[in-house]
Design a protein around this nucleic acid. Structure first.
Lengths: 191, 191
DNA sequence: TTACGTTCTTGTCATTTGCGAAGAAAAAAG
DNA sequence: CTTTTTTCTTCGCAAATGACAAGAACGTAA
């Protein structure tokens, strides 16, 4: 649980004492490779801190194809914002790409903590803002960059992804087919 | 100012009395067509409720081309989340596409209200979550739909945009060139 | 190990899209 | 109203990408 406490402190918004107190409300959750942490159609009720492992989020398009919408590594918060806060069914699934271990907080507990601890409120908002911001950046790169540029960018900025996720997941995350990604990699290896 | 009060109440998170009290901290701001409400490089310090008019947000890509990232109509909150909350320079510009009139709240005032009114906090979070959620939807459509499908979707879901924004802005918002959008429209009119 | 299923690569072909440039149309300025 | 600027459309061509299919490579489980 030390990892969680350290994570809460890392933002400099929460001190050690408060971090320990917040962390005490989380419960341990362990999953195996392939397990679904959240299934589309259900309401997300876990604000989940991933201590160890790797996960991805994916949705289905109108034709039923899987589209990977995000990857999560060690020490990241994993939850479906809209489902969690609006208490509505999630359109996304969260799947473990390896054995996972982390800490979960329920909606009720999170609200209780938000209500009593302004620091945790700010922490929560900072997480939300961060997620929003990185999604915006990704949208911009989707519009302005070629598939090849996006591939290289991901390779530089988040190399861990390539160690944990199959290429077809990465392809849909980048907005290309697996065929196309394979070609991009081939061109790249020529140099 | 009635419009603002009504807007604050519309979420059902804030009652009339509190809405009036919150609204009293906003200040009126009027702008002409073409004016920049926020310039890239500056820190956004206005949580802005657009009462009347139409605006767009745009950024520049690495080659210096304008990319429209969002459109805002009547009765919408307009602000750059990351710049506003993190107090960092904005990468985006906000421009009036017609004469605009709305109400602005400073970061300091917003925090003061967040601190004293749990209802307004929830309201603020709901706005944030909503923006996040719609950006996710848009990202998914960018990955799974063709440019033509995205065009038709926008035409159905937000027809006002076509009454206020030039097509080249809409093109970059949709992630295509103006040339390509022109072709898509031509194909469409053949039916 | 062997057999099976999944993932990845490669090929061909059709389609979409971008780029550069030119002209038409529309809007703004004088 | 005329001029100027901006926006929109159109053209030809090249490049990128998707769809489909076949086979290779890989991992998993019996």
């Amino acid at each position: 649980m030390d990892t969680l406490v350290a994570f809460l402190q890392s933002s400099n918004l929460v001190n050690y004492e408060k971090a320990t107190m917040i962390a005490s409300h989380f419960t341990l959750k362990e999953m195996d490779k392939g397990d679904l942490h959240l299934t589309a159609g259900k309401i997300s009720d876990e604000y989940f801190f991933l201590e160890k492992g790797f996960m991805r989020a994916f949705a289905h398009d109108t034709e039923g194809n899987e589209v990977t919408t995000n990857f999560y590594g060690d020490k990241q918060v994993v939850f479906e914002v809209s489902s969690f806060f609006n208490r509505i069914a999630s359109r996304e699934n969260f799947q473990c790409l390896g054995d996972c271990r982390g800490w979960a907080l329920s909606y009720a507990d999170l609200n209780m903590l938000f209500h009593t601890l302004p620091e945790f409120r700010d922490f929560g908002r900072a997480m939300l803002v961060k997620g929003f911001s990185s999604l915006k950046t990704r949208m911009l790169s989707m519009i302005t960059e070629t598939a090849e540029q996006r591939y290289h960018g991901l390779l530089e900025q988040r190399p861990e992804i390539f160690h944990h996720a199959p290429l077809k997941n990465i392809a849909s995350y980048l907005g290309v087919t697996d065929t196309s990604l394979s070609r991009i990699r081939k061109e790249f290896s020529k140099k």
